[in-house]
Amino acid sequence: MKKNEVPQDGDNLVKGESNWLNYAVDQNGEYVQEISVGWEPENIALEQAWEVVNEKVEEARTKVLGGQLSPIAFYMEVNIMDIPLLANYMDKYQWQVRRHLQPDIFKQLSEETLDKYAYVFKISRTELMNVPTNKNTK
């Protein structure tokens, strides 16, 4: 890659926050450092990864609002976690976390357990008890 070919494809997703170092060759064939504000394929791949995350979040929100799952399911997706990872953060077995995803079981959880979930998700216990009804609250 030549120095003047270092991609400068900023886009809305990275909002100008992206500025990464690249190595490229100058006109004398010497390797030099050059800043890139982003590159189209990387932006596309990143966008795609977030689309998958957001789809899962929306699916969980619908299920929580529909009474099929507890709010833990929603916040788990917001934090890009799955059951094994969340169980690890909670120091619990996966089957325990899976049970906590059931709305009826969730209602019976101790304050201590709820606080721990809230801590892991970096939210308050009040927030944990409810999921936002609208999209894009985070």
Partner: peptide, 29 residues
Amino acid sequence: LYLGNLIRMQEEIGTGGAGFRFIYAAFLQ
């Protein structure tokens, strides 16, 4: 999705582009 992941592993933050090939070429030089 598989393809997108390949790009991310190759290009995302901390790879320096082209899956580290340019950094290694700079080293060889």
